[in-house]
């Protein structure tokens, strides 16, 4: 009887769809908002707000027809869940690769469409400079030398040469797209010296480039 149940379970686990997910991670582990993570030898970091845009997502290959996700724009918000389900209707194992825009391209940025995930109430719209924050990373760290220890990175901008969106194509070796923030805070940002960025420009482009290289499929 037990053997039968186990075989049924195995059968089901093989047949269950492999949903397309997105996670913010820290050294490969999904980040839980407000939890403290060690940073360096004696400091810590806590994220309170993590958001990013993905757009024009398409799955390709293995003889299947290419599959375009229902919405043109997805705002990933770590507040909703540690694992964000991008699409539950397909099985990622039937596809070879995924292509998408990390961030929003200049067309979406300037469309003037304020609907759905582009609604300014979601806190990603720049009212003074038409366009969107592509990646929002907010939290606290003992490294930030202010009384609140707050850091606040609003990374965006679509104008060349400092455009912060990237067209990516990755092999679907797994079903989860991960954006790991460990490298950004260990190697690229010294929170002791810089803890706020709220405008487009060269620095935004540099940080976005690090974020781009911190994406992997698992």
């Amino acid at each position: 009887m037990r053997a039968f149940l186990v075989s049924i379970l195995i059968l089901f686990s093989f047949q269950a769809k492999s949903q397309l997910l997105f996670n913010f991670t820290w050294k490969g582990e999904p980040i839980t908002l407000s939890r403290y993570y060690p940073l360096g030898e004696k400091d810590s970091i806590q994220f309170t707000e993590l958001k990013c845009y993905l757009s024009n997502i398409e799955l390709k290959g293995k003889g299947n027809k290419d599959y375009q996700l229902a919405a043109a724009v997805y705002l990933i918000d770590a507040e909703d869940s540690t694992s964000f389900v991008l699409d539950s209707s397909i099985d990622t194992r039937n596809f070879k690769s995924i292509s998408f825009t990390f961030g929003l391209d200049s067309i979406i940025n300037t469309s003037g469409d304020l609907e759905g995930d582009l609604d300014p109430v979601l806190g990603m719209y720049w009212a003074w400079n038409t366009g969107y924050i592509h990646y929002k990373i907010v939290g606290h760290s003992s490294l930030v030398p202010t009384p609140s220890h707050l850091f606040d990175f609003h990374i965006g901008g679509y104008r060349k040469p400092n455009a912060t969106y990237f067209k990516l194509e990755l092999l679907l070796t797994g079903s989860t797209i991960e954006l790991d923030l460990y490298q950004l805070f260990n190697e690229n940002i010294n929170l002791n010296l810089s803890h706020q960025l709220v405008v487009p420009g060269k620095l935004a482009f540099e940080l976005a480039t690090v974020l781009k290289s911190s994406i992997r499929v698992k």
Binding site: L114, Y125, W128, T130
Partner: peptide, 16 residues
């Protein structure tokens, strides 16, 4: 010239 849509312009003075 930071804002390029009349439809979205009012967000700026409203939230500033």
């Amino acid at each position: 010239g930071g804002v390029i849509h009349l439809n979205a312009q009012a967000i700026n003075p409203l939230t500033h």
